[in-house]
């Protein structure tokens, strides 16, 4: 239960906070779309910069707009857990796409040398 009183001071603080975050997000959006003009990069560089920008924006949205910063520990814990699980799925799929048959080759190289 939210038993704390929501005072005029809280109100002013939150308005300013949301305003600041909004300005920051707008700035980052500008950077997102202008990045290729300023720092022309190959695909890897572009993708990296873009995903970093998106992650910063994502962090701001989750932490402030979705007020995870002030949420209960249960909610925080489950957010980390879910992102971790999703990350693991990406890593495993990445291994499958990336590694091909390197271990098999290794075994075959060993057996061939005998």
């Amino acid at each position: 239960m939210d038993t704390k009183e929501f005072t005029e001071k809280d109100f002013q603080e939150q308005i300013i906070m949301y305003g600041k975050i909004l300005a920051l997000l707008l700035f980052l959006t500008g950077v997102t779309f202008l990045q290729p003009l300023f720092i022309s990069q190959g695909l890897e560089g572009t993708l990296f910069l873009q995903l970093v920008l998106a992650s910063i924006k994502g962090f701001l949205i989750v932490a402030y707009y979705m007020h995870l910063k002030t949420a209960s520990d249960v909610i925080k814990g489950t957010v980390y857990f879910t992102v971790f699980i999703l990350g693991v799925l990406f890593v495993i799929m990445g291994i499958d796409s990336n590694m091909d048959d390197s271990v098999l080759d290794m075994f075959q190289a060993v057996t061939a040398s005998h």
């Binding site: 990045q35 290729p36 022309s40 695909l43 572009t46 993708l47 998106a54």
Partner: peptide, 28 residues
């Protein structure tokens, strides 16, 4: 509901680089 809306916004934040911005790279 605001949480839901922020989430929908969050998805879009990641759609932009992956679908719109990669075409602007000098590579590929």
């Amino acid at each position: 509901f605001a949480l839901y809306w922020d989430y929908v916004h969050l998805v879009w934040v990641f759609v932009v680089p992956l679908f719109y911005m990669i075409g602007l790279s000098t590579g590929g």
